[in-house]
Design a binder for these strands. Sequence first.
DNA 1: TATCTAGTTTATAATAATTCTAAACTAGAA
DNA 2: TTCTAGTTTAGAATTATTATAAACTAGATA
Lengths: 139, 139
Amino acid sequence: MIISDNLKMYVQKLRSSNLRPTKQRLKICKFLFDRKKTFHFTVETLNKKINKSGTSKVSLATIYNTVEAFTSAGYLKEILTSKNKSYYDTNIKSHHHFYDEGSKELTDIHYSQIKLSKVPVPPKGKKIKNLEVVIRIQK
Amino acid sequence: MIISDNLKMYVQKLRSSNLRPTKQRLKICKFLFDRKKTFHFTVETLNKKINKSGTSKVSLATIYNTVEAFTSAGYLKEILTSKNKSYYDTNIKSHHHFYDEGSKELTDIHYSQIKLSKVPVPPKGKKIKNLEVVIRIQK
DNA sequence: TATCTAGTTTATAATAATTCTAAACTAGAA
DNA sequence: TTCTAGTTTAGAATTATTATAAACTAGATA
Ligand SMILES: [Mn+2]
Ligand SMILES: [Mn+2]
Ligand SMILES: [Zn+2]
Ligand SMILES: [Zn+2]
């Protein structure tokens, strides 16, 4: 993940996906991708963070639209481990997760931390799109 | 899974979990567990099946209550692989799943069909509650 | 630079799944 | 038979998400 003060990189990225680099999208890009470490979030938490300090607001509809657009474009990964709520991941590499049932937080497990020595063949006519391990943890 | 014409077994099972064997719960037990093979369902599909033919109706609230009670009691397993909707599994043994993104159907992968030769240690103070592999498939 | 238009944002309504509420009902202990 | 805690139920409320449609804007073109 590259840290940048200017937004040229995001402008290009968005253009390459046929997404206009609007000020809302760039603000969200900056928040999501201008950091050393990837992280997990929900629309709810993203909305709070984006609309925190007195800056110009981004509507909830746009937060939803943007998260959806970024997921389709492959900038985000959707994680379905929690009931009634989608999580998103700025780490788009293939990897696994711990899911803490208490705190409802996801933690990455690097791809290499889990080794599958035996995997079944998918049903006839179907292809494997991805394989993910979720380890549910508790106190 | 034992097939039974009489309901004594379910009555006992329910009593042992401090659940009164009401006619609604027994009807749902019969539908869920009186079969050779386990299966996956949603509250929506269960509700339709339970309330199909002219028999006395079970309210949707009771379907929800019962699925929740049976999951807590360990008769059902909740599967969170789909957006905005919980799936449930009458197979409560530890096992894995194919999830078909097209048909939105789950298929069991027997525990022995996947071998994990390397698994990470959980974070300090946390215990592994379960580990599940989901293989998303597509045409 | 001014104009134009498809794409975007937004407030708000609509939908879908689920949970809550509180009144009526019932299993089963006493 | 009586009593009561547990259960069922219809319907309301809540939560996350998606749809709608009017106002706005990026950026291509004149
Ligand atoms: Mn979900
Ligand atoms: Mn939902
Ligand atoms: Zn992750
Ligand atoms: Zn299963």
